[in-house]
């Protein structure tokens, strides 16, 4: 379970996250929807303990991100979009293994887990080749395997499909669903309505660092009397673009 309590982040002049609170239950996919600069990445970075909140806090699997960051890190897996974040000179296996070791897994467990993931993601063929020459889709799979090698209970996705083609995006979507099936607690940030509508149980719309709307997709459609979530979103955030 994830619980944000008045989470805030201020960078020098910019107030990037202005006190956000919500809760995500186990086995649920929560969509964090917002435009560029809304504060999605900053929120997720705080949950992943990369950044320290300047106010409020959050509990992940019962651990406080401010007081027990190491315990929190053992619980989470992240898949952040854009760069895949792999070491080019290492093989796919070595990349995955490095993160497994850092997350305190035992050697035998690591080998079993990598074999299992390689089979599941259909990447056995290139498991022992260096990542440098991989296609984007292949790299994506390695990054996916790495994010769940330690079998975390909480998954954080930050625009995981940005820059991917339809096929690769589909692989990611399937992966997110399979995480849900395994009972993981998931937050997915996105600026794509379609993606959120397709995957998420509930959404929070974040605008300039504040949560402006929160609920199930059905709730939102009903509340605004509109079946097109895109229009609902535009209504909520589209009026002040000058920022």
């Amino acid at each position: 379970m994830i619980q944000l309590m008045d989470l805030q982040k201020r960078f020098k002049q910019i107030e990037a996250v202005k006190g956000v609170s919500f809760q995500v239950n186990q086995g649920e996919i929560f969509g964090l929807l917002g435009e560029n600069g809304a504060g999605k990445t900053t929120t997720l970075r705080m949950l992943a303990t990369m950044l320290q909140p300047t106010g409020g806090t959050a509990l992940l699997g019962g651990f406080d991100i401010v007081r027990e960051p190491e315990r929190v890190r053992g619980q989470i897996g992240i898949l952040f979009g854009g760069e895949m974040g792999l070491y080019d000179r290492l093989t796919a296996r070595e990349n995955i293994q490095y993160f497994a070791e850092l997350n305190d897994m035992r050697r035998t467990d690591i080998n079993d887990r990598i074999s299992y993931l390689a089979k599941m993601l259909d990447m056995e063929e290139y498991l022992d080749r260096r990542v440098g020459k991989f296609s984007k889709g292949m790299k994506q799979k390695v990054a996916i395997a790495r994010s769940i090698v330690h079998n975390p209970q909480i998954m954080l996705f930050d625009e995981p499909t940005s820059g991917l083609d339809v096929t690769s995006a589909r692989v990611v979507h399937e992966f997110i669903r399979s995480c849900k099936d395994e009972g993981k607690t998931i937050i997915l940030s996105s600026h794509s309505m379609k993606e959120v509508e397709k995957l998420c149980d509930r959404v929070g719309i974040i605008h300039r660092g504040s949560m402006v709307e929160l609920g199930t997709i059905e709730d939102l459609k009903k509340k605004y009397g509109n079946d097109d979530l895109e229009e609902v979103f535009m209504k909520l955030v589209g009026d002040n673009h000058e920022a």
Partner: peptide, 9 residues
């Protein structure tokens, strides 16, 4: 390379 973020988590 973008490896720092996953490493820090």
């Amino acid at each position: 390379r973008g490896t720092l973020e996953p490493l820090l988590t």
